[in-house]
Design a protein around this nucleic acid. Structure first.
Lengths: 115, 115
DNA sequence: ATCGTTTATCGCCGATGGACGATGACCGAA
DNA sequence: TTCGGTCATCGTCCATCGGCGATAAACGAT
């Protein structure tokens, strides 16, 4: 693994808020850096909770592909997964999503203030 | 809420808020989804303008690797590139950075309102 | 002109991503 | 039970990423 040459870890900025390290932010942004996943997120948010099939029907992607994208979103913590009997239920974790946005905001602010 | 006056690709929906398409957002987020690039951005922002060498000295990465990362950041429009005689100058485009953040904010908001 | 510095690019390689089809498991209904 | 629908996972294929060293071009200084 090629990590550890960057940031000391959990640095705190002047405002006292904890700035997540670059790896964490990068990993979460990576989950958002695919158009299909963004669209899937939008779709999920529009209907509170979806099963995989609904997403497959909406987009022109194979079921296995959609399942993969959902898995990535779940792994990133942006989508909650609840295995129902037959139909799995996927739902946007709005708090987590807001958190990612806040992290990026913090990064941008630190870039704009450090001058 | 947020104005993003740039972005030629931004389509304006009925509500007047600018909603960039998924590909655009995804591409810009992809540029941010690497810890080294995030750290490089922070470094650039801390000293207004850098040459490649400065970044190479700061991080434990080969010069070619840093050059690649910088190229990616430039291509994404997050960093401005100005070829000086000998030393290229790289500087954070704070407006573009703020714009990415705003785009993500807009996405999150649309996900949180659509319910 | 020659050397040293800086930079961008090339080629290479291993790892990962993204797409798909096929498969098997699970469940509900007939 | 059998059938149909849903889902996760596996394996495969191809493209891209991320790292590096090597190289050549451009420039300043000697």
């Amino acid at each position: 693994m090629t990590e550890s040459l960057l940031e000391p870890n959990g640095s705190r900025d002047a405002s006292g808020s904890c700035a997540p390290d670059s790896h964490t932010v990068a990993a979460r942004l990576a989950a958002l850096s695919h158009p299909a996943r963004i669209e899937i997120l939008k779709h999920l948010s529009s209907s509170n909770s979806c099963c995989c099939r609904e997403v497959v029907d909406r987009f022109d992607l194979a079921q296995s592909t959609v399942s993969q994208h959902l898995k990535i979103l779940v792994k990133a913590g942006l989508v909650r997964f609840e295995p129902d009997r037959q139909r799995s239920r996927y739902a946007v974790d709005r708090a987590a999503l807001a958190d990612v946005s806040a992290s990026l905001n913090a990064l941008v602010n630190s870039c704009c203030s450090g001058r």
